[in-house]
Structure formats: C-alpha cells, structure tokens
Simulated assay, not measured.
Amino acid sequence: MFEVETDDGTLYVAEDEGERGDEGPFMVVYRTPERETRYGWYCTNCESLDNAMDAMGTIICNDCGNYRKPDEWDAAHE
C-alpha cells in the first residue's frame, strides 16, 4: 500500500486490490492502513481520486476518462 495526501487527510491505496480500466487499473482506497473503512477508487492512469461509480459497478475517472465496464448490465436500459 502507498499513501496519498488529500484535504481529507492521509488515504491508503491498496495496490493488490483493483479493477481493470480502459486506460489503467482502478485501485481500492482506504481511510486506514488496516483496511477497515473503504474510501473509494484511485485511477492509476492519472493518479486521481476523483472517480465515480454507479450501482452497476461502472467506474469513470472524472479527470482522464478512464472507464471500467459494469460486471453485468440490463439490456432494457440501452
């Protein structure tokens, strides 16, 4: 794990937990090094924490556009 300093304090990026993105992996971010409280996602493509995830599991980096497709999707919504 490595640390990232933010306005919220120090956050911890788990390099061994992540999801594949189009431009680079998204890594899980925690508030504590013990991995007790999950904070969000870290985009390895642009080193940003500004990411959004929807209920279907899609992750999009708001800075560089790195994108993770959902695990499942409902064709009725297309």
Score class of each variant (00 low, 15 high):
39 Y>I: 00
53 M>I: 13
23 E>C: 03
65 G>A: 09
33 P>I: 03
8 D>H: 12
4 V>F: 07
40 G>N: 08
6 T>M: 05
41 W>C: 08
69 K>R: 13
43 C>L: 01
38 R>D: 00
47 E>S: 15
48 S>M: 07
18 G>K: 04
10 T>H: 08
38 R>Q: 14
31 R>T: 03
65 G>E: 03
27 M>A: 06
53 M>E: 15
68 R>V: 07
14 A>T: 00
75 A>M: 04
71 D>E: 13
55 A>T: 06
36 E>Y: 00
31 R>E: 11
59 I>A: 01
23 E>L: 15
78 E>Q: 08
11 L>K: 14
62 N>M: 14
4 V>Q: 12
52 A>N: 10
66 N>M: 11
11 L>F: 11
42 Y>E: 06
5 E>Q: 15
37 T>C: 00
34 E>N: 08
35 R>A: 07
61 C>L: 10
5 E>P: 00
75 A>T: 07
9 G>W: 09
23 E>Q: 15
34 E>Y: 01
65 G>D: 05
45 N>L: 00
66 N>I: 12
18 G>P: 03
47 E>T: 03
67 Y>D: 09
58 T>R: 15
62 N>S: 12
51 N>I: 04
52 A>T: 14
63 D>V: 15
55 A>Y: 07
46 C>D: 13
60 I>N: 10
15 E>T: 14
6 T>R: 06
45 N>G: 07
9 G>H: 06
22 D>V: 12
2 F>S: 01
40 G>W: 05
78 E>F: 11
52 A>K: 11
18 G>M: 06
59 I>T: 02
26 F>Y: 14
31 R>K: 13
28 V>W: 03
77 H>G: 00
29 V>H: 09
5 E>I: 12
20 R>A: 13
36 E>W: 00
55 A>V: 12
42 Y>K: 09
36 E>Q: 08
30 Y>L: 02
61 C>G: 07
32 T>G: 03
70 P>Y: 02
43 C>G: 01
